[in-house]
Design a protein around this nucleic acid. Structure first.
Lengths: 105, 105
DNA sequence: TCCTTTCATCGATAGATATCGATATAATAT
DNA sequence: ATATTATATCGATATCTATCGATGAAAGGA
């Protein structure tokens, strides 16, 4: 994904490609909620994490945590797998890295 | 700001400090809109940029661009100064750098 | 089979946000 | 002074989002 190219800011300069802007905004939007920031923070410190532990860690209802996980999943920032009754979530390092790169990393 | 510490994900692990989560989420929320991503992208490629050029670059009304600039200003990601009739905006590199650092830079 | 547990989805609702036209403000020019 | 131009703010509205309780789906245990 090409981002932050070297351009000159003037009236005739084309804005960043709308599709790219949209994709990036969606990724950042996934991190625009404090609960989701905290979830990502947790996942960043471990291999994977059971949903049941996330439910226990936040003072929010189980459907609300499930909703936040879906937002993160749809943004591609996390992925999940089921093993038996439990679902395990983990970060997608490449997606996080792309965001970091967008910010000039 | 301490972020992404090395923790073990378990039922007893404390979530990230709520205040820190809130601050980070606010910064990311400022980048959660495609127009604002494109504005930041523009500012990243130049010293500073006149609002009049931003108004010309996007197919949005002048109040809408002004609104987006306010969101970015309130998040600390950009700053502005007036010279005569015109207002000039520029990035705050430190703020962008903090976000990058949060993502593991 | 029936019950329990885990997680996702649905439906509803209160609050946030993006957008615009209208208006205010402030500087400059005539 | 009046007009013009650039930017910010206000008020309204349509859409989006976070949250919850209720329900569904799928697995395991008694």
């Amino acid at each position: 994904m090409k981002t932050l190219p070297i351009l000159c800011c003037g009236p005739e300069t084309e804005p960043l490609d709308p599709a790219a802007s949209e994709t990036l905004a969606t990724r950042f939007r996934a991190l625009s909620d404090p609960t989701r920031v905290a979830i990502v923070n947790r996942l960043a410190s471990t291999e994977e994490c059971c949903v049941c532990d996330l439910n226990a860690a936040f003072e929010l209802s189980q459907p609300t945590i499930s909703h936040h996980l879906k937002v993160l999943r749809d943004a591609g920032l996390v992925e999940s797998s089921r093993r038996g009754t439990w679902a395990y979530y983990r970060l997608v390092p490449a997606a996080v890295g792309e965001l970091r790169h967008t910010l000039g990393g």
